[in-house]
Write a protein that binds this DNA or RNA. Sequence first.
DNA 1: CTGCGCTAATGGTAATACCACTCTACCATG
DNA 2: CATGGTAGAGTGGTATTACCATTAGCGCAG
Lengths: 254, 254
Amino acid sequence: MGKIIQKTSVSQQVIDHILDRIHQGELKPGDRLPGEREFAEYLGISRVPLREAISALSAIGIVEKRQGDGNFIASFSPDVLGRILHTYTMLDHALADDLFEARSLVEGASARLAARNAKPEDVQALYEAVDVMEQAVPAYIRGEKRLGDMLQLDDLFHLQCAAASHNQFYIQFVNIVHTAGTDMGLYERTYGRHPEKYYDSVEFHRQLVDAIAAGDELLAQDIMCRHIDLIRTDTEQEESLPPEGEKTGADTPA
Amino acid sequence: MGKIIQKTSVSQQVIDHILDRIHQGELKPGDRLPGEREFAEYLGISRVPLREAISALSAIGIVEKRQGDGNFIASFSPDVLGRILHTYTMLDHALADDLFEARSLVEGASARLAARNAKPEDVQALYEAVDVMEQAVPAYIRGEKRLGDMLQLDDLFHLQCAAASHNQFYIQFVNIVHTAGTDMGLYERTYGRHPEKYYDSVEFHRQLVDAIAAGDELLAQDIMCRHIDLIRTDTEQEESLPPEGEKTGADTPA
DNA sequence: CTGCGCTAATGGTAATACCACTCTACCATG
DNA sequence: CATGGTAGAGTGGTATTACCATTAGCGCAG
């Protein structure tokens, strides 16, 4: 028997087993796993380690648990990576400076690559994203839109820009830095107090898409970097100021 | 009231609870969690969801389980991120091209930033890493070293280079691309068949550290990018060839 | 002082029962 | 016939209990 000591726990074996089946192509996103009772019996184990394995896979976004329905192979939602990394950055005292540096680098490169690899439908989607945001800005200033909505629209544009690069790693990285930045609450103060700054953002976005559509790699990279640097400057300026009386919303404290 | 219906499961609440305590600084790496029985009783729940929560946190590298000893807050080992990403790349059919593109970008930038931020002790550590590897190459060619050892030494250098940038995100990203690349087995074939290529690597490394020590940002970036591009070229060349008869190492079957 | 072995604490599994949710199909109602 | 409510079955979620496997630590014999 080859089994040397082999102290792999059952739950870990189940994890490996499922991952293997995914790698082998036997399990694809959207597929449903057998019911826990049935699955446990099939594997010759109890429900506990099986559920622990599923819980672990769920934590890394591989499996989606739906009570009353079943367990399913998740269709890749890279948010989890950002969240995990965010947790780590909390432990490692990552600074906002680090984040902006990384954003400038990663997004600048993704913009450059997008200019090289973007397909017509990518460009069209980007223009639409810009239009949507452009129309949303006045509504936001009039108070018809929430700050969260605006941040989401901005995120969407940057993520679509990364998607246009067609590089899986860039897409991941952009997602990570965005999730981390949002979780840190970096952008709320700036854009919460100075909604008009969104006009600048939209202008940057449009010029960026123009550069991407034209295939001008260096220009696209340059615009993106200047865009992010501006956000950095604004944010740092806000950070250095004393906090406003209250939050951005509409509260009337006693 | 934003709360729709939304009832979070107990295990998820436990996960959030532990993460919160980490964010609050109540739990630090190395700290020991209470025994599962005691902890469950304290939280007013059973062991099952508690263990599921711990299993999930273990999957993302936050908690380390040690049978017979206890559960501990793990001291950040970013391998998990790379592994998770690797699993995703399997699902998304990420190409090796994407990886090298990302490596060139991320590591080039980290080299550049290292040239800006490296402290004397960083430079010294880098030179030492180069020396160690330089001495290891002849030993490897003589068969006194394993391929795995060499790959590890190479990894070590690149990670230390990232560490010299003093940007947590770069450190993470470099770690991710390296782990993913290693897991894909990209480098084994090239350096397994052509050990002499390590001489080139060492030369690149030394020039790179010189540039970092001199604070020449652009030169450092340029060297790193050329270094990685060379690896890419060699690897792609190998990939296009038919696989060799047997494994790379030194085995004498039967 | 050294080393063996016991013991207690801890994580790991198993088995069972029951709760909570979701979907579906059936049935009563208009 | 169309509609809407309802009961059932299936599924994940939790609780409880008991026991196995491994580890750390301590005491005892050498």
